[in-house]
């Protein structure tokens, strides 16, 4: 399948009062048409910043994209003018955000927030836009859509708001949806419902999905391929099966061990990853994970390991990837 999105050596830096943070430090990954790709990592690893870079919505002036390419359907998004980029946002690439409570405008009706998206990209009449919004609300499983169109965000629960966000994201039939921790702020039961909904709809319309999450459970169930990020870099990538069966990076191994699993005895202990999360202003010279790594060798402190192939589509940025054992 051809690649829909190709991110190459993307670098997004943040200027803060304490210095420059390499929030995204040369990441490359592909999203093929219709597939679901996960970007996994703990908070602060640069996953949100990567998604915002693709949308070219990084917070200015603190953040800037200093290098790389983001090719979407063959066009480098970083070279597009503002108006060209606007036509892609919402229409070709849509985004769903983490906080359903604050991501919808409190003073505009739900209907308006859906129709304005459609109207920004298609020459539709008011009536057509409205019936499109109605159809979308039905699609995301909101009952009594005709009445709810006239309501406001504060009259919706968190899960319902996120459904509205999904409706907005789907409104122009995009090729790609970036979902930034779409369910993190919600109840566990609602999380599953929403993820199912997103999977069903993305399959139905052939939309590619990039799910940004720190939740490996989500990854295992819904992603075709996985990119694990640590301190602004992708340190392991591969199919979901590859990464689950045989992680090839100490950080991924640690992540997997620190999550409770139903297929293991209840008494087996959770093992947290040792040490502190990386100090982004002061990363070590070699591998960023070296200070916390159990398998550290001399070379790790001197030179950062590149992301290299270890199996078919499985890549790891670890000097000793081949010799790692659980």
């Amino acid at each position: 399948m051809p690649s829909l999105l190709e991110v190459r050596e993307l670098k997004t830096y943040l200027t803060t009062s304490q210095g420059v943070v390499k929030a995204v430090d040369g990441i490359s990954f592909d999203v093929r048409e219709g597939e679901t790709v996960a970007l996994v990592g703990e908070s602060g690893c640069g996953k949100t910043m990567s998604a915002l870079s693709i949308m070219r919505l990084i917070p200015r002036p603190q953040a800037s994209i200093v290098g790389g390419e983001i090719r979407f359907q063959g066009r480098d998004l970083l070279k597009l003018g503002e108006e060209e980029m606007r036509r892609i946002r919402g229409a070709e690439i849509a985004m769903i955000f983490q906080e359903p409570m604050t991501s919808l405008n409190p003073v505009l009706s739900i209907g308006r927030q859906i129709t304005e998206t459609v109207e920004a990209h298609h020459p539709l009449s008011k009536e057509e836009a409205r019936s499109r919004a109605l159809e979308l609300l039905q699609l995301v499983g909101i009952s009594d859509p005709a009445q709810r169109l006239a309501e406001y965000p504060h009259q919706f629960s968190g899960g319902m708001r996120q459904r509205v966000m999904i409706a907005i994201a789907l409104s122009c039939r995009p090729k790609l949806i970036l979902a930034d921790e779409p369910t993190t702020a919600l109840d566990v039961t609602i999380q599953a419902q929403l993820l199912e909904l997103m999977r069903d709809l993305s399959r139905r319309f052939g939309v590619a999905l990039v799910i940004i999450t720190h939740n490996l459970g989500v990854v295992a169930r819904y992603a075709d391929r996985v990119n694990v990020m640590y301190a602004g870099k992708i340190i392991e990538s591969g199919t979901a099966t590859e990464i689950y069966r045989a992680p090839r990076h100490p950080y991924t191994m640690g992540l997997l061990r620190s999550v409770p699993r139903l297929d293991q005895p209840r008494k087996s202990k959770l093992e947290p990853i040792e040490g502190q999360p990386p100090d982004l202003w002061n990363l070590p010279a070699g591998c960023s994970f070296a200070p916390r790594c159990r398998f550290v060798v001399e070379k790790c402190a001197q030179e950062a390991p590149p992301l290299r192939q270890v199996e078919d589509s499985h890549h790891s940025a670890c000097w000793v990837a081949e010799t790692l054992t659980q």
Partner: peptide
Amino acid sequence: REDYIRTARAKGLWERVVLTRHALKN
């Protein structure tokens, strides 16, 4: 700086609309 302004931009609205309909009204 609100999240919904970022949403409005992510929807591909014109900057003018983001400003008047979404920002100023609030």
